[in-house]
């Protein structure tokens, strides 16, 4: 088991290094010039060249990549003399527009994304499994018809539209919810939750749709499963049988959930934009807008890392939940 995890982690490191290369190559492939954004409004070629050299973006992609990897291991120094900037190892890059290294930028934004992701994930689980289960139990009933429509809507409507609708309805028309800003949990848990209800609603609505569908299908399968009839035939009570049915639903749901949580933790660009939350998604977006290579690479790597870890967790979790996978 330990060997397996170790092997997966080693693979993950190489995968991340490859992702870093692709990201850097794509960044320059899109003919982005970080120096252009930094050099100011009248930007004579001479100044631009200096800025470029200072930011070390005047070199080839391969050289950039080499510096990036070197920075991870040994740290990186930009410029010299009074303008010298140190980025200690492991250095994921230095953001000149923000005058800060990427690691601390991600660290600053993480609480926002974390709050957003975890709340949305919990809400999505409750709503998705709840609605899905209710519609499976009363198949064809009112709840079922409502939640089928709900799921269809959630799957087909883009996040920004739901986001703007929530802001419009709850923020402006009903004026019951704040529609922007973030209050740290440590400052006031109530305000923290109050400010996040909107974005939680939006994200979980979009996500819950697939949970409704999976829960409903799985539970319907389980409820008509012969092995549950067999269990009743052995003398089990409906409660014992139902508890068993739940297990069959939990297997696919937990796999989905682990992957969705990691995706959420990587930042939600649209929801953060709509609700003016400064999380990782917002950081990534600003990095792209300001041609800030270090931020783009840093946030991409962070998200990729989470997804790799999420997959590993799923792969380790599934055999525990489903013995059929254990010895396959």
């Amino acid at each position: 088991m330990t060997a397996y995890i170790a092997r997966r982690m080693v693979t993950a490191v190489f995968m991340l290094l490859a992702i870093a290369f692709v990201t850097i190559a794509l960044f320059f492939g899109a003919s982005k010039d970080p120096a252009r954004a930094m050099c100011g409004k009248p930007c004579p070629a001479e100044t631009k060249a200096k800025v470029s050299a200072y930011m070390q973006t005047d070199q080839s992609v391969v050289w950039q990549y080499g510096q990036f990897v070197k920075g991870l291991v040994a740290g990186r120094t930009y410029g010299e003399g009074a303008q010298q900037v140190e980025c200690a190892a492991p250095c994921f890059g230095y953001s000149f527009p923000n005058r800060s290294d990427v690691t601390s930028l991600i660290g600053e934004r993480l609480p926002v994304t974390l709050s957003l992701a975890l709340g949305a994930a919990v809400l999505c689980l409750v709503v998705g499994i709840g609605l899905g289960a209710l519609s499976a139990i009363r198949k064809g009933g009112m709840v079922d018809r409502f939640s089928t429509g709900f799921a269809m809507f959630g799957l087909s409507v883009p996040t920004f539209l739901v986001g703007l609708l929530v802001v419009q309805v709850f923020g402006f028309m009903l004026n019951v919810l704040p529609f922007s800003g973030f209050v740290p949990f440590s400052e006031s848990p109530v305000d923290w939750a109050w400010h996040l209800i909107g974005p939680w609603m939006v994200l979980s609505f979009i996500l819950a749709a697939s949970y409704v569908r999976v829960t409903r299908t799985q539970l319907l399968n389980e409820l008509s499963a012969e092995h549950l009839v067999a269990m009743t035939a052995r003398g089990a009570s409906p409660r014992q049988v139902n508890r068993h049915a739940v297990r069959g639903v939990m297997v696919p749901i937990s796999a989905m959930f682990a992957l969705d949580v990691t995706a959420l933790l990587g930042g939600s660009v649209i929801a953060e934009k709509v609700f003016s939350l400064h999380g990782l998604g917002d950081l990534l977006l600003s990095g792209v807008n300001e041609s800030d290579l270090s931020i783009v690479v840093g946030v991409t790597l962070f998200s990729a890392f989470l997804i790799i870890v999420g997959n590993l967790v799923v792969d380790l979790l599934m055999p525990l939940l489903d013995p059929r996978i254990r010895r396959a």
Binding site: A225, E226, H227, L228, V229, A230, M231, A233, H244, R247, G248, L321, D322, P323, R324
Partner: peptide, 13 residues
Amino acid sequence: MVFQDSMSALSPY
């Protein structure tokens, strides 16, 4: 009762 399809009559878990 003994069921026809022993696979589906047994819980996979």
